[in-house]
């Protein structure tokens, strides 16, 4: 594991996968990653960075562009973006860092590297078609408040999510 609070990361050239940045660019949202010129505006106004010094979108982008596939995909930090879009609005190169993070996360999922919390989320959607099902308790509460009846589960979501 790479600790992102480390001052520097030693790059092992033999580990670099030159196809990795190109694969990120092929994912929806990853298209503009190569425009990044490492100005760190994204880091400067990142609310996650303000709390967790280890989270550093600029560094994640640089590691991706270098081709550090295994280290990037296996790190928890790629899952920490809160998708607030502050960096996206301020990035002078229109890189769209939150979209880039999504592209990288999509590749991690394809490689089977999925954090337990995300796996739970996927299972919940496959089961209910919703983040939260309208269970018996919620249905009763809705009825009591005079809110309309809604279907408990969403079937079309399940169909889209099937392998």
């Amino acid at each position: 594991m790479v600790t992102m609070t480390e001052k520097s990361i030693v790059v092992d050239v033999s580990e670099l996968k030159s196809r990795f940045p190109r694969n990120v660019m092929k994912q929806p949202g990853g298209e503009a990653i190569q425009k990044c010129f490492q100005c760190a505006v994204c880091v400067a106004n990142c609310p996650i960075r303000a709390i967790e010094a280890g989270y550093n979108p600029r560094r994640i982008i640089k590691m991706t562009l270098l081709g550090m596939k295994d280290r990037v995909l296996s790190e928890e930090f790629i899952w920490l973006c809160s998708v607030c879009f502050l960096c996206q609005e301020r990035c002078p190169q229109e890189v769209r860092p939150p979209e880039v993070m999504n592209a990288i996360k999509n590749l991690a999922v394809k490689e089977g590297i999925i954090p337990p919390a995300i796996n739970k989320l996927i299972e919940a959607f496959k089961e209910n078609g919703r983040l939260y099902p309208i269970d018996e308790f919620a249905a009763e509460e809705r009825d009591y408040m005079g809110l309309p009846k809604l279907s408990e589960k969403s079937n079309f979501v399940k169909k889209i999510l099937e392998k």
Binding site: Q27, P28, G29, W79, M101, N102, A103, K105, N106, V109, I114, I118, L121, I122, F125, G129, R130, L131, S151, S154, N155, F156, V157, L161
Partner: peptide, 14 residues
């Protein structure tokens, strides 16, 4: 009869 908007799953499969 709407379902999920897709947002929570963008990280999994855009």
């Amino acid at each position: 009869d709407f379902g999920c908007c897709g947002f929570p799953l963008a990280a999994v499969d855009e």
